[in-house]
């Protein structure tokens, strides 16, 4: 007889999903006249946060090993600047540049991963140095704002509208023109990343060992897992995903600036935490992070829909939510401990 057991961790995920539904439902009721009920509003959240979604997947993996990577936001900024300057000033083709960006991401991850896994330096310090380095490199590449206009392929990719098939959620606007909901190519990339990472964590040896290392690195070693190698690979993966996120982000903004994506790493971390990933490692899922990102996006959309609220309200609401989830996690952990004793 198999008994359906709901552990504390799945409770967290259920609460997160419920919260998203309630929040979005409330938005639909309150801002019905502002188009909140249209499918496109939901898709816009995905479009605006495609880059963050990729980054959050990497952050989640790192957090599953019990580490942290705060360099990802700066890596995104560096990628955007590199792409922008490469296309506009060096006259390079976008496919080459995109490939180069991914290689840069991997190299960045290898250096950070080596310092963390093999030199046993605290992840926070190493990735903080990475944050400084990438942010500074952004300015070294170029200190001005560079807009991407000249590369036809990149512009085409950025403007490409992928319509939802069978006209689901289509509606006629005030002028009587049929509006078919669409997503950008970035959303497809981001969702593909989520799916792949989800499958990887669930079914591959590497994915399983990430959980094992995060759960208890000592017993992972005793089981014969190469803890250091796993950790290193995870940081490489995070930087690689940050680079993919950077490309998505760039396709969305179509420019490179030095202050771009500031604080993105914290958004990614808070999305993961809201999605039920424990910072102590070993517990969590990218599915939760996806919902976390959606919640973040919904909050800012709600604040924007209100029209009169200042954008800092979005930060405050996210922080309150974060606080709520962190405290909830702590309480659940305490309950678990007292049950054991």
């Amino acid at each position: 007889m198999k008994k359906l057991k709901i552990s504390g961790n799945s409770i967290l995920l259920i609460i997160t999903v419920a919260l998203f539904v309630v929040m979005y439902g409330a938005g639909c009721i309150v801002y019905a006249n502002k188009g909140f009920t249209h499918l496109q509003t939901f898709l816009n959240i995905l479009i605006n946060n495609a880059g963050l979604l990729c980054v959050a997947c990497g952050t989640t993996c790192v957090m599953l090993t019990g580490g942290i990577d705060i360099s990802v936001g700066s890596v995104v900024a560096m990628d955007c600047m590199f792409l922008a300057v490469g296309m506009e000033e060096w006259g390079m083709k976008s496919p080459v540049l995109m490939l180069l960006v991914l290689v840069i991401g991997i190299v960045f991850g290898v250096v950070q991963g080596f310092c963390i896994a093999y030199l046993e330096i605290q992840p926070f310090i190493v990735t903080m140095a990475g944050l400084f380095f990438a942010r500074g490199m952004t300015a070294v590449i170029c200190t001005d704002q560079v807009s991407i206009v000249s590369d036809p392929l990149f512009v085409k990719l950025s403007n490409m509208k992928l319509n939802i098939p069978f006209n689901i959620g289509a509606y006629e606007n005030k002028k009587g023109i049929l509006q078919i909901p669409y997503v950008r190519i970035t959303v497809v990339i981001a969702l593909l990343v989520v799916l792949l990472i989800f499958l990887m964590l669930k079914y591959t040896k590497f994915g399983r060992s990430i959980y094992a290392v995060g759960g208890n690195s000592q017993s992972a070693t005793l089981m014969g897992l190469d803890v250091r190698k796993t950790k290193m690979k995870t940081y490489v993966l995070a930087s690689f995903l940050a680079s993919i996120g950077g490309i998505c982000y760039c396709l969305n903004t179509m420019c490179g600036t030095t202050t771009q994506a500031t604080g993105l790493e914290m958004d990614a971390i808070s999305s993961a935490v809201i999605g039920g990933t424990l910072l102590t490692g070993g517990v969590g899922n990218v599915g939760g992070s996806l919902v976390g990102v959606l919640i973040n996006g919904t909050i800012s959309t709600l604040v924007k829909s209100h029209g009169k609220l200042v954008s800092s309200w979005a930060n405050i609401v996210t922080a309150i939510l974060l606080c709520f989830f962190i405290v909830l996690q702590a309480i659940l952990a305490k309950v678990k401990e007292s049950k054991k004793a």
Partner: peptide, 25 residues
């Protein structure tokens, strides 16, 4: 060095210092 570029050098200094301090090294 401009204020926006300074972090690069700061990062290098940090990494050098922590690598020297690292136990395995």
């Amino acid at each position: 060095v401009s204020s926006a570029q300074a972090p690069v050098f700061k990062a290098i200094v940090v990494i050098l210092i922590v690598v020297i301090q690292a136990e395995p090294v």
